[in-house]
């Protein structure tokens, strides 16, 4: 049941990413918003918080992949996380901005991204 094993491995990685995502300040703050601060628009909040959760889980998958395998290209990250390359690029841009990730050379016609320390 080789197929089953790799499916389980993928799910395990994704779940690990989700656990890391729920440890981030950003997601934890968003979960607790209704309790503190001025009035929040419920509709807006629901839409935004779902997106933030999905983004954080996807980003932790990207970071996890880089930490495990070393500097990766967008193509490699897309294959590993099953996110399309456009989505991966969007996350890379955001992670770059906060300093989590940076360029580390070129490979196969694209840039390599590493976890900054």
């Amino acid at each position: 049941m080789i197929g089953g094993l790799s499916e389980k491995k993928k799910l395990a990685k994704k779940t690990d990413a989700a656990i890391e995502a729920f440890k981030t300040e950003r997601l934890r703050w968003v979960l607790g918003i209704s309790q503190v601060g001025p009035k929040v628009d419920e509709q807006k909040y629901k839409a935004v918080s779902s997106k933030i959760m999905k983004d954080e889980i996807d980003r932790q998958m990207i970071i996890g992949e880089i930490k495990e395998k070393g500097p990766r290209t967008i193509k490699e990250l897309s294959e590993a996380t099953k996110l399309n390359t456009k989505e991966v690029l969007r996350h890379i841009i955001a992670l770059r901005k906060i300093g989590t990730i940076s360029e580390a050379g070129e490979k196969d016609g694209g840039y390599l991204y590493k976890a900054s320390e």
């Binding site: 967008i74 390359t85 456009k86 991966v88 770059r96 901005k97 360029e103 016609g109 694209g110 840039y111």
Partner: peptide, 17 residues
């Protein structure tokens, strides 16, 4: 800028030739 001066394609991040 958003990519630190690295020009790439928006569909897949590849370097355009």
């Amino acid at each position: 800028g958003p990519t630190g001066g690295h020009v790439l394609r928006l569909s897949d991040g590849k370097i355009p030739k």
